[in-house]
Write a protein that binds this DNA or RNA. Structure first.
Lengths: 240, 240
DNA sequence: CGCGCCTTGACACCGCGTTGACAGACCCGG
DNA sequence: CCGGGTCTGTCAACGCGGTGTCAAGGCGCG
């Protein structure tokens, strides 16, 4: 699996669309984009994305029409409506064309990402083809719950909380399991392009993850150091 | 068991009813439907569904009357009231007709499904007969009575009143137990789309709930803070 | 008109992210 | 096999943003 999920952004306002696309790409999603309803519908039908972020007010074809057409043609993507606070919303909530969630404009990117992840986690519509992030992931002896921000060690039975950054980092390691990732890559992909912390910060967070996930943090089995290069993640635990 | 559960939808507005029926069928439920109170009651008595989604404003016989008749005849289905935000709800809570939950219109399908699942989970004690949710929920050492707007602490013995907003918030936490909910989501789902208070309001209400429910409000066991993200609810109380 | 609840701003406090320092580990060349 | 240089593990401390809490204001409800 190369990307966590494929997401189609249908939004006509250029700055907002670009912001969304950038943020989603930075999170490791594969992103498609369209600036009007017709293009969005066509792209969705052609590419079959996992998630569609759908604005309501669109040129050529409004969001409702697009959504109706999608459901009619059995596109089983998770659809998140991006709506301005207003009367259209009554229609959405009232009888529901089959949207999975809605986000009221203006929203923060962080909130949107939370919603997208929640939708993916939920993605339990019984539709084949959607084998997405199941919300809870086993890492050796630890069970990580991304929805609850917790990890439980099945050996010692302790349940500990994980911070946002720790989960972000772990999520990225999971998405590129087995690859050796250097610190610069991790900083770019997990911290983003706005922050430029030192590389020691990465070490620190790896340390914290080891303490919470590894049975013996001094003998890591999952978060492995590759001297002179970076870190490699192995979910199962390479050695005894 | 062929279907997860049998659900009766009693709702006179055609588009909404059809949307509900479709969504529930898509989720694997077996669905019965009725467009007015009399038909709904008759169907419930004849078929004995597991869950009833009951509108309040109905032709021929209103929802309260239907609910009363159901309980009188010992129909032990889980009943979810579909109600507009308003004074009718006070009557539901005040008179304790035996509803298991309520959903405020307008609602999203997703929200409704969560509530239905939560109700099924709660009500599924595997015991036939009248094993109804008494409208009282235990949260650790506290016993919350949704009908009476009160909470009693079984350790300290104090009985305190809860305001409507506090109960709304608690109810939402209960419906999504274990998930970390960010403040924007809480504002959207609990406060609704008409007013948009600041996020500090959420903190304030969490504080008030802690004081009334937690044995030691400064060391919360049930309403947990996840720094930089939001709050997570845990009914049992994770730690000692 | 009074009461209670919701809401908000203020302020103190706390947790997390971040960093520099230092010791130990590792690699490579000699 | 040894030594120097570099990289990594770990700690303690700092600063910022997020959160707990209070008290005052406002609003609706009775």
């Amino acid at each position: 699996m190369t990307a966590e999920a494929r997401i189609l952004v249908v939004e006509d306002e250029e700055p907002l669309r670009m912001a969304l696309v950038d943020a989603l790409r930075a999170e490791g999603f594969e992103v498609l984009e369209a600036a009007d309803g017709e293009a969005g519908l066509a792209l969705a039908l052609a590419e079959g994305p996992d998630v569609v972020l759908l604005d309501l007010m669109l040129p050529k074809r409004d969001g409702f029409s697009v959504l109706r057409a999608l459901r009619k043609d059995r596109v089983d993507a998770l659809v998140l409506i991006l709506s301005a606070r207003g009367e259209e919303w009554d229609r959405v909530q009232g009888f529901e064309y089959g949207a999975d969630d809605y986000v009221v404009k203006p929203f923060s990117i962080r909130e949107l990402l939370l919603r997208v992840r929640a939708a993916l986690r939920r993605g339990d519509r019984g539709v084949p083809g959607l084998q997405l992030d199941p919300g809870r992931v086993r890492v050796g002896a630890a069970l990580v719950d991304f929805a609850a921000y917790t990890a439980e060690r099945t050996d010692g039975g302790e349940q500990v909380g994980l911070s946002r950054k720790e989960l972000d980092l772990l999520r990225y390691f999971l998405s590129r399991e087995g690859e050796v990732l250097d610190r610069a890559t991790l900083l770019n992909e997990v911290w983003g392009r706005d922050d430029f912390p030192s590389t020691r910060t990465v070490d620190m967070h790896v340390l914290k993850l080891r303490r919470k996930l590894e049975p013996d943090p001094e003998q890591p089995r999952h978060l492995l150091t590759v001297h002179g290069v970076g870190y490699r993640f192995d979910r199962r635990g390479s050695e005894g």
